[in-house]
Every structure is written in structure tokens, then in C-alpha cells.
Amino acid sequence: MPLLLFSQLFLYNYVGQQSFGSSVVMLIICGALVNGPYALITTAVSADLGTHKSLRGNSKALATVAAIIDGTGSLGAALGPLLAGLISPTGWNNVFYMLISADVLACVFLSRLVYKEIQVWRGCVNRNSSSCLALTHPR
């Protein structure tokens, strides 16, 4: 989704200014491409933490870590508009370039996780399903 968002932001910068309808459609697509990974990441991290053996039975620690994850996402949601407001006097193209660079940065940060998941998946293709479950969700 972040890779699709990268191209969608370029397209929105040029096509979204043509009419109100095209701007609304582009905003809906951009919103889906941004919110999808955010929801998946926060849900997957919370689920992985819930099964981690160091947090098992300690609901306060789990709640604290989940709150830190959600708070970090909220911090990013607050800083984005602040940066857009600071950059917009230099031109809206620069705001789009800021959004695109934030998307590229997110892709870079997620690339290690994606690489690990691909390695686990490739190992599961050659094994039976019970060992794949053990690889992806250790007990």
C-alpha cells in the first residue's frame, strides 16, 4: 500500500487539481492507502505483543506498550499537518513532496519487516503447515 501511495500522491498532485470530483476520489484513495497500513501495523503489533512470553499475564505492561504504539501514531498524525502548514507558503508542490518523502521513509522502515516475513513465508512453502505455524507464531 505505501508503494501504491507513492504513485497516487504524484498523480493527485497533477490530476486532483482539475475538478472537485477528481480531488474527492483521489483523497478517498489516498486515505485508504494510508489508513490500511496504519490499522494493520497497530493491530499486528498489539497481537504479537499479546502472545509474547515476557508480557504474558501482565496486562498493565501490555496496555502500556499498546498505548505507546498508538501514541506514536497519533504523534505522526499531529506532526504531518504541522509540517504541511509550515511548508505550504513555499508552494503546494513542496507539501506533496514532503508527503511523498514521508511515504518513502515509511517504506524504508518497513522493508526489514517485509524481508523477514518473506523469509518466513519462503520457509513455510517448503514445510508442512504445523511447522509454519510454529515459525510465525512461537509459543
Rank of each mutant, 00 (worst) to 15 (best):
K60H: 07
L11C: 12
A77Y: 09
S101L: 15
M1E: 07
V104L: 13
A47P: 01
F109V: 07
L62D: 03
G57S: 05
N94L: 06
A102T: 13
G57L: 04
F10Q: 12
K116M: 14
T136I: 15
A61E: 04
S130C: 08
Q18W: 11
G73Q: 00
L82F: 08
Y97M: 09
L82V: 13
A134E: 08
G91M: 06
V120P: 00
L113T: 14
T51M: 09
V24L: 11
S129P: 14
P81D: 06
L86I: 05
L27A: 13
G21M: 12
G31Q: 04
S19T: 15
V45K: 02
S22W: 14
R122G: 03
Q17E: 07
G123N: 12
L40G: 10
C30Q: 03
N126Y: 10
L133W: 13
S46H: 01
I87W: 01
L55Y: 04
Y97D: 02
L83G: 04
N126W: 13
A78W: 03
R56H: 10
W121H: 11
L49K: 01
L33N: 01
N128W: 09
V120Q: 07
P89C: 03
S54M: 09
V15T: 08
M98T: 06
L3F: 14
S88D: 04
S19L: 10
K116H: 15
G76Y: 03
L79F: 12
V65A: 06
G80W: 00
I100L: 06
K60F: 08
L79D: 12
Y115T: 08
H52C: 06
L75T: 14
A32W: 14
A77R: 05
W92A: 05
Q119F: 09
L135C: 06
L27V: 06
F96E: 01
V15Q: 02
S54D: 15
L9F: 02
V125W: 05
V108R: 03
G21K: 07
W121C: 08
A32P: 05
L86W: 06
I118C: 08
L110Y: 08
Q119A: 10
I87Q: 00
L5N: 01
N128E: 15
A77D: 05
A134R: 11
G21R: 09
I41A: 03
T90Q: 14
I100D: 00
A78N: 05
M26H: 04
L49F: 05
L135W: 03
G85S: 10
F96L: 04
L82Y: 07
L83I: 13
C30W: 00
A32K: 13
L33D: 02
S129K: 14
